[in-house]
């Protein structure tokens, strides 16, 4: 099992498979809600959320390629993405590199769209760019290793950056954000609100745990593969809870893409420490 993440080739293949799953999840999700797009391809989900699924659109300013492509263009776009994701699972290196570059190109197309990408989408796109660069010279093991290092660095940065930003925010330190989130008409629900509203100790401890583990996430690189696994399991639980309680499902699929690379780098650093 540990060989899967300690060897660069197997690790990068595992990462590619996870990227394929994440891309499939995202694109199939878009195809599943295709009815929520206007005929000219404008995404109406924000309005849907705000108006409680009973909405009326009078005029909407289109800005993005969806306006040119329309819904049929979007379907084509996501089918191409799904095809690229399916090719990503193969062991054939040039084919994998080609599908990665195709995904990069599609990501660039999608970047100029009506709504901003969320954190998990940005993370997935950056990871795909790193992986494509790592595959650009088929014979080079060095580049593949470097790609894994950069993917791990990006993962650590995305956790730690968010953790430090939260630490600077006093409402996060006091634990008010969770209560606010539970009260939110979009993300929260009555039951969670009732629990968080009455149980201040629980809310504060959850907030502090989130803060501490996100801020200290860079330690996962230097605590060896065991420490790394602790951080990874915490992150999985964290994302599963976020998905189940607040509906942030994309993070649960997108962020684990970086976990094999993180374990790989942690193992390498452990070996370097043991050797030095």
């Amino acid at each position: 099992m540990t060989d899967l993440v300690t060897g660069p080739d197997s690790c990068i293949r595992l990462t590619c498979c996870l990227v394929a799953i994440a891309v499939l999840h995202e694109s199939l999700g878009y195809l599943a809600i295709i009815r929520q797009f206007r005929p000219d391809g404008i995404y109406a989900w924000e309005l849907v959320k705000r108006h409680g699924y009973r909405m009326r659109v009078t005029k909407y300013l289109p800005s993005g390629w969806e306006h040119l492509a329309g819904v049929s263009g979007m379907v084509l776009f996501h089918l191409t993405r799904i095809l690229a994701a399916a090719l990503l699972v193969l062991e054939h290196l040039p084919l994998r590199a080609g599908s990665l570059w195709l995904l990069v190109a599609l990501g660039v197309l999608q970047h100029n769209r009506t709504f901003f990408l969320n954190g998990s989408e940005v993370f997935l796109r950056v990871t795909i760019i790193f992986l494509a660069l790592a595959h650009s010279v088929p014979g080079s093991v060095l580049l593949r290793e470097a790609g894994l290092w950069f993917v791990a660095g990006n993962l650590v940065l995305s956790y730690a950056g968010n953790g430090w930003a939260k630490f600077a925010d006093s409402s996060w330190r006091r634990g008010e954000v969770l209560q606010r989130m539970a009260r939110d008409p979009v993300f929260g629900c009555d039951a969670v609100n009732r629990v968080t509203g009455s149980n201040l100790l629980l809310v504060r401890s959850l907030s502090v745990t989130t803060l501490v583990l996100q801020c200290l996430f860079p330690l996962s690189l230097v605590t060896g593969i065991e420490g790394c696994l602790v951080f990874v399991s915490w992150a999985l639980v964290f994302h599963a809870l976020n998905a189940a309680l607040f509906g942030l499902a994309t993070f649960l699929v997108a962020l684990p893409v970086g976990f094999p690379a993180l374990c790989f780098v942690a193992h390498r650093i452990q070996l370097l420490n043991a050797g030095g």
């Binding site: 999840h25 199939l28 999700g29 629900c189 998905a243 189940a244 309680l245 607040f246 509906g247 649960l252």
Partner: peptide, 9 residues
Amino acid sequence: LWNPELLVK
């Protein structure tokens, strides 16, 4: 798969 919170809520 995309709305796991519906299961819980």
